[in-house]
Amino acid sequence: MCTTCGCEDHSHAPRANGEATGRLRRVSLERNLLEKNDAFAARNRRHFQERGILALNLVSSPGSGKTSLLVATLERLAGSHPVAVVEGDQQTSRDADRIRAAGAPAIQINTGKGCHLDAHGVEHAILDLAPGEGSLVFIENVGNLVCPAPFDLGENHKVVILSVTEGEDKPLKYPDMFAAADLMLLNKVDLLPYVEFDEEACLGFAKRVNPNLEVIRTSARSGEGLQAWIDWILTRSAALAR
């Protein structure tokens, strides 16, 4: 009896086990597309943990004022805390130049056509920067509210920056990023009198996407909220120190 289907006819057996149809076969994989990135991210996270480093991944759309906010932050931290900055942009080293001018060591990653940083690129930058024990590492991602969301860099927290010159409904339009973040900086609040931005609605939308999201209102220009933001950073950094 045919062992393939139980019939008495043996003539179709070779085809049934695939021999007669060429060498077409199926390979089962079950492999996660992000596995390589996640492995590098885990390595970065271990590197940070071993040194008590607080790493923050700053994400936003282009033009939210990320770099200005970072420069203002670094100026306030200067001299009191070791810092290092990884800058991601598709082209130019203009942002890293601004950061270095503020007195912080910085490495620029140009992603070329890439629309986000990945954990492997960040690992190289971190090995070059070699931030010391207890450092604060700021990773300024490529300006993009979509693509950086699924790519873990090994950071302790994602911080999303939304400026009041953007639409208040951005948390609903780009929920992945707001769901992945632990803190939202509502930036450029000095411009609130001049723009039509419904702050209450914005905070409602943000909390709807991520009820655990903390919010700090900031302005790099007026300095509003910067101390609260720095306190947020230093509280978390101190918790890592042993």
Partner: peptide, 9 residues
């Protein structure tokens, strides 16, 4: 996002 299988020859 997972690659489940490949058909190959």
């Amino acid at each position: 996002m997972t690659i489940l299988s490949l058909d190959v020859e």
